[in-house]
């Protein structure tokens, strides 16, 4: 009996290894083939791009995402938001989603005339949620970056953002050069702060957390000399908690925050863009700011943070 079992196991393991190496063989084979024909293929791809995109969209229609019509027909829209990131997306003491992003999300559902379901996301999984069609829109304080724009489609922006660094009052970091080799900087996995520091300051040791809540607890416990995140968040954090100072309030390029949909979901994207422009006429995002953010940032940040009607959409395109 026992011998038999061992035989079976080793056969299974062997099979697994063989399948693995077979896969590896196939992959590298096609890889070199593609590389060999590099030049002509590159041109071809460019020419094909427009055509393939349309084909891709058609293909995706069943698996990847739901079009505007499908959402309306189903009577329900699913939006991914943060649940732990006050004051942008969080769950209040009554279990209700609240915040700047959520205020907008509620309006989207209302104007579409459908029911609304919020899904709580983490920073690192926002793209996955869209690519696997688990949500229709991501409204989780999603900063527009070129890398992300390759994976998802961003609508017009509704907020401005840059990076900021908050530190403890007894040692305020006002410049990244003050961070020594022994220091650790807290970042949240999957955020623009992580990408920026990984790319531009690889010498800085990062301590990564996977949620806003754990990063916050760790920082409060004295882990890390500083915490790098969106400046809106570090300003909010320093305003809400004693003993912290935002030493660097604008790091890297000025970016915008926008809703994102699955790549190729044009009907929903167009609707969102129209919606954002239309909402600009009634100063919706100013109202949103006054309802959700004014307590944290005060009125003086209103014009800095709010983007109305997708207004500054042209700015990032120029960069």
């Amino acid at each position: 009996m026992r011998k038999n079992w061992i035989k079976k196991t080793s056969a299974a393991v062997l099979g697994l290894i063989l399948t693995g190496s077979l896969l590896a063989g196939c992959g590298s084979g096609s890889g070199t083939a593609a590389q060999g024909a590099d030049e002509p293929q590159a041109q071809e791809t460019e020419a094909e791009a427009a055509g393939t995109e349309a084909a891709d969209a058609a293909e995706n229609e069943n698996a990847g995402f739901r079009t505007l019509e499908e959402i309306q027909a189903s009577g329900k829209i699913t939006i991914g938001v943060f649940s732990d990131k006050s004051p942008f997306g969080y769950v209040d003491e009554n279990g209700e989603y609240q915040g700047y992003d959520v205020y907008f999300g509620n309006r989207i559902a209302q104007d579409l005339g459908v029911e609304l379901e919020y899904v709580s996301t983490e920073a690192a999984s926002r793209i996955e949620y869209l690519q696997t069609g688990k949500v229709d829109i991501i409204l989780a304080n999603f900063t527009v970056t070129p890398e992300r724009a390759e994976e998802v489609d961003f609508a017009l922006p509704y907020m401005n953002v840059a990076l900021g660094v908050v530190s403890h009052n007894d040692r305020v970091i006002t410049d990244l050069s003050q961070i020594t080799a022994d220091d650790q900087v807290i970042v949240i996995s999957g955020t623009t702060a992580e990408t920026y520091l990984t790319k531009n300051n690889p010498e800085i040791k990062l301590q990564k957390f996977d949620t806003y809540a754990t990063a916050k607890s760790a920082f409060e416990n004295g882990t890390g000399v500083a915490w790098a995140n969106d400046n809106t968040e570090v300003i909010a954090f320093a305003a809400e908690n004693e003993g912290y100072t935002v030493g660097i309030d604008s790091l890297g390029s000025a970016d915008t925050i926008a809703p994102a949909v699955t790549k190729g979901n044009e009907t929903l994207l167009n609707w969102l863009n129209e919606e954002i422009v239309k909402l600009g006429e009634e100063k919706f995002f100013h109202a949103d700011y006054e309802a959700t953010l004014v307590d944290t940032y005060g009125p003086e940040f209103e014009e800095t943070l709010v983007v109305e009607g997708g207004g500054q959409a042209a700015a990032p395109a120029q960069n």
Partner: peptide, 17 residues
Amino acid sequence: SLMDLMFTAKDLIGLYY
């Protein structure tokens, strides 16, 4: 915040998709 296998995978997905 320990960079074990699972976190490394999640982190890389978040960085490079």
